[in-house]
Amino acid sequence: MKTVLGLFALFFETSKLRLSQAMAYRLNFILHTLISLAFSSIGPVLQYLIFSQTRGFPGWNLKQIVLFQGILLLHLGLRSTLFGALHYELPQLIRQGQFDRLLLKPYPAIGTILAGGFDANHFGSILAGTAIITGSVLSTGMKVGILELGTFAALILMGLFLYMSFEILYAAAVIILVRMGRLYDIMGMLHKFGEYPLEIFTPAVRLFFITAAPMAIWVNYPAQVLLGRQHIHIWYSLICAVLFFSISLLVWRKCLGKYTSAGG
C-alpha cells in the first residue's frame, strides 16, 4: 500500500514537471491541446459523417452514436493524459541504456514507468468528450440517476485499468525488442477495434472483445449503461479485465528477467 501511495506521489511530481514544461512553450501548449482534440476527433467525425449520410449501422441511431463518440473522446483523452508520454519516453529510455537508472529507484520498475506517463496535451479531448456526453444526455432526455452515473464512472475507471494492462505488455515488449520503435503503432491499431460499436463485428469477434481482450469496457459498456441497456456481459468482461491485468504483470516479470542493458 505504501508503495502504491509512493507511486502516486511520483506520478503527481512527474505530472507537475511535464505541465510546467508544456507551458514553457505557450503557443505550442495551446495549439497542442487543440490539435490533440482534432486528432482524437478523426474517428468520431468519420463515424458521424458515415452515419449522417447513410442509414448507419445496426443497433444504433444518430443520437445514440453521438453519445458513443462523446464517451470515446472522454476515454481517449483520459488515457492519453495518464499514459500518453510512455510511447515515446520508454523506447528512448531503453535505447540509451538509462533503464538501469530506473531500476535503482526504490519502487517496482513497472510502477516507476507507469508513473511517468503523464502528457499535458490532451485536456481538450476530456473537455469535449464531457461536453458531448452531457449534451446528448440532456437532449435525449435519458433518465440518468446516481446509480447509472456511478456505474458509468466505475466502468470508465475499469477501462483505464485495462488500458494500463496493455501499457504493461507494451513496456514488456519494448525491453525485449529494443529496436522496434514503432511497436506502439501496432498496439494503437489493435485498440482501434475497441472504438466501434460491438454490433459491427461477427459474433465470434464480438466474443473476443468481450472476454479475451475486453475492450468493450472502454466505450461500449459505458454507453449502454447511460442508454439503460446493461447486460450480464459486463460482469464477464470485468473479471476478464482483472485476469488480463494479472497476466500482463506476469509477462512483465518474465521480460524484466531477460533484460540486458544496452552499452557498456
Binding site: 458515415i50 477495434f193 466501434y196 459491427i200 469477434v205
Partner: peptide, 12 residues
C-alpha cells in the same frame, strides 16, 4: 477492421 465496419454498413 474496415472490412467489418463497411460490411455491416453496406449490408444494413
Amino acid at each position: 477492421l474496415n472490412m467489418a465496419l463497411f460490411q455491416s454498413i453496406y449490408t444494413y
